[in-house]
Design a binder for these strands. Structure first.
Lengths: 279, 279
DNA sequence: GTCGCAATGGAACGTTCGTTCCATCATGGC
DNA sequence: GCCATGATGGAACGAACGTTCCATTGCGAC
């Protein structure tokens, strides 16, 4: 029997555990083994599909080093380690296009209507992807800090962005945070905005094409010294000029129409983060 | 040179094309080859990871049949065909948990705030997954038909669901569809609802815990013979009893809070589908 | 400087792989 | 009923695989 197996009898059987362990031990590993570990973490797909020879060449080591690496972490051999990298790809949920095709094929009453739903679900998925990749954590943290200090949070949005502030108003009210939804049916919004002070804060949301009213209210409120967090879809937005801090979220479109799926997730996250920062 | 290569010089290099061709030719294929084709379409992951011997055993054929199958579609051999199945897994976007971890590791200023955003993005992603899998296309089609016939569409929602109807009202107005957002600040909603006739239609949206007002308005309007499409989160919802047709969308939650990402995509799809069905 | 040990490279091993080839079987035309 | 043709099963092949083993190198302790 091999002594290694006594020392490390149970190698991680799922990719997450393996990555954690490899990442932790990487600095203390011998040169070639850490070279393999680094390559494995950076190119997991290659490990899954390649052969020992091809991977060894790509990582500039000998095939035997791969086996040693596997032994190091308790596996029976390289092939055993490779199984973990393959399982990782197996568990992965299939992309929307594929999943939706399956649904469409399963049910024979497929119609153009469902194509539209497909399109919006795909767009929502892509938007959330993009947000996850593109969000600036520092900006998000600062936005939370600004809003957490506020006495009252003024919510400014029109037209397409209004559902976002109305949901935030609902969420904040549930969480005991005082807000003011600046969307009066009596056209006294500038007067309401004028009530905000430096001890308050405001959230302004607007996407291309930017609502003139939102921009104007945001400017007024910012000039009065009220900290302003803007949520918009590009750094060229007129809101970024006047905002204390701003967050970018770009929704993918389907057939020219944009949903609000990613923005909704961002707004809800902001709402909950602010409320939890206040406690 | 092999004649097959002259006959079918270019085998499909991406999985989608391959699936389309195999699906089309499946019925005209010899018994064992169609057996392989069927297995390949149903277990693409096995083809990607397995060996010719293991796949052959699983599909109850000889390994040589796999090679014949590959030749049939213009591939140089089974290994060549297998590459297409592997590429399919390679292109697949990584799941959110993994992607977000990468982001978190990349930026060292990771804070609890970003964890909350992670959570909501993950929940949004899961919700959209679930909606894509769980949606009933027939119900969706019928809902579109009902609303497409309507003169005016009455939109009923309170509290958490209100952002959805407010967005639909915006979308419908852009698309030239007459709507009435039943959300009056003057508490005359029952009177407004009473104006709806059988030539109109209504959309009622409510999730657990169901808003009493929404349920009551939905009942009134349904009893007046107005076709009613409900959007809710379970078949036990009080709305399903009175609705002409209903759609289910269950949002995943993060820390007890639900975002509206999937519902937003569904509502926008419904809006655009109705408008396009009217033309 | 040299001893000892871990790390490494690379040849050699047996195994398993994908593929080919040929004998056998099934099937439809005449 | 027989023949021709395509489909199928299965043995055999060489190539490529993962693994082992051993000689060599690198490096720190004394």
């Amino acid at each position: 029997m091999n002594e290694r197996i006594d020392v490390a009898p149970s190698a991680p059987r799922d990719f997450d555990s393996l990555r954690a362990i490899v990442g932790r031990e990487l600095p203390s590993l011998p040169k070639r083994l850490s070279q393999v570990g680094k390559y494995a973490l950076e190119h997991p797909d290659e490990i899954a599909f390649g052969t020992a020879a091809s991977i060894a060449a790509a990582a500039h080591v000998q095939p035997s080093t791969l086996v040693r690496f596997a032994h190091q972490f308790g596996y029976e051999g390289f092939s055993d380690l490779q199984l973990v990298f393959r399982e990782r790809l197996r568990d992965r949920p299939s992309p929307y296009a594929e999943r939706l095709r399956t649904i469409r094929e399963r049910r024979h009453g497929a119609r153009p209507e469902i194509e539209i739903l497909d399109g919006f679900l795909g767009a929502a998925s892509r938007s959330i992807d993009k947000l996850a990749e593109g969000i600036n954590p520092t900006r998000f943290r600062r936005s939370v800090e600004i809003l957490a200090r506020a006495d009252t949070i003024y919510l400014i949005a029109r037209r397409r962005s209004f559902p976002l502030t109305s949901y935030m108003a609902y969420g904040f009210s549930k969480l005991g945070v005082r807000t003011h939804l600046v969307n009066s049916p009596t056209a006294i919004d500038p007067e309401i905005a004028a009530m905000a002070s430096a001890r308050d804060a405001a959230i302004a949301i607007s996407f291309t094409t930017y609502s003139a009213e939102t921009v104007s209210l945001a400017k007024t409120i910012a000039q009065a010294g009220v900290p302003l967090v803007a949520i918009t879809d590009s750094s060229f937005s007129p809101l970024t000029e006047v905002a204390t801090e701003w967050l970018e979220v770009a929704e993918a479109d389907h057939a020219g129409f944009r949903s609000l799926s990613a923005s909704m997730a961002l707004c809800m996250a902001l709402t909950v983060a602010v409320a939890s920062a206040r406690e």
